[in-house]
């Protein structure tokens, strides 16, 4: 017999959600995400992640003015700032990660996170580690897979499952609004791109960057929409 849902057991996951997706959930209409990966030949590189909620700032401000939403406490702006700062601090301490920076514009709700990494493995491990710390080491099967790998001039990339799985928890009515948003995935190399698998991808005129664009709704419906395997030429 199913009884009351235990909120306590899910508290840590909700806390993570409250950190990673709070503004996405409440401003689900017009979220713009840019996921920008620059990869060097030796596997090191720079990762930039931009979340632009400026189109929804009126809605965000109206919700932040509330105490609770759907029975849950709405975090104050100071709490959000503090949580974001804590996440960045945690990320800075991870192996193989350097030059971590956060450009947070709380007037327009634009957040730009950037870091350098020694290897894609270190980057993924750092992200997984921060998520695990935030969820108090709760078992999250979505973290079992690797979403980036680079071997012999071939990059395989997808979108971390956890971002998709948790976004599925948005109510259907709100989810439909995600069609108005956008998710852009850019991968840059110091070599010329030879070929790629995802037919929806576009290569830049200089041949060294590739872009895939969709909206968050489509991405939730088809998690493989941004998957791509990119082949690089041996010489620049």
């Amino acid at each position: 017999m199913v009884l009351y849902l235990s909120y306590n057991n899910d508290m840590k996951v909700h806390r993570l959600l409250a950190l990673v997706f709070p503004l996405l959930l409440i401003a689900s209409g017009c979220v713009e995400i840019i996921d920008d990966l620059s990869l060097n030949a030796d596997g090191s590189g720079t990762f930039k992640y931009t979340v632009n909620l400026s189109s929804s700032k009126i809605k965000i401000n109206s919700i932040l003015a509330l105490d609770t939403l759907d029975g849950r406490k709405v975090p104050s702006l100071d709490e959000i700032k503090s949580d974001v700062d804590r996440l960045i601090k945690a990320f800075k301490n991870k192996d193989g990660i350097s030059e971590v920076s956060l450009d947070a514009n709380y007037d327009d709700y634009m957040f730009k996170i950037s870091c350098d990494f020694n290897s894609l493995l270190n980057l993924q491990n750092a992200i997984k580690s921060v998520i695990l710390e935030e969820t108090e080491y709760k078992s999250l099967p979505e973290l079992d897979h690797d979403w980036l790998s680079f071997k012999e001039n071939v990059l395989e990339r997808s979108v971390p499952k956890i971002t998709i799985e948790k976004t599925k928890e948005i109510r259907q009515a709100d989810k439909a609004l995600l069609r108005e948003g956008s998710y852009t995935s850019i991968t840059r190399f110091d070599k010329i791109i030879d070929d790629f698998r995802n037919k929806n991808a576009m290569v830049s005129k200089n041949g060294m960057a590739i872009m895939l664009k969709t909206n968050p709704y489509s991405l939730i419906e088809d998690q493989r929409l941004l998957d791509n395997t990119i082949y690089l030429k041996s010489d620049k």
């Binding site: 931009t50 632009n52 400026s54 850019i186 840059r188 830049s204 005129k205 960057a209 590739i210 872009m211």
Partner: peptide
């Protein structure tokens, strides 16, 4: 609101 404009040459 803020929008992004992409350069076709380099993205």
């Amino acid at each position: 609101k803020i929008i992004f404009e992409y350069d076709d040459e380099t993205f």
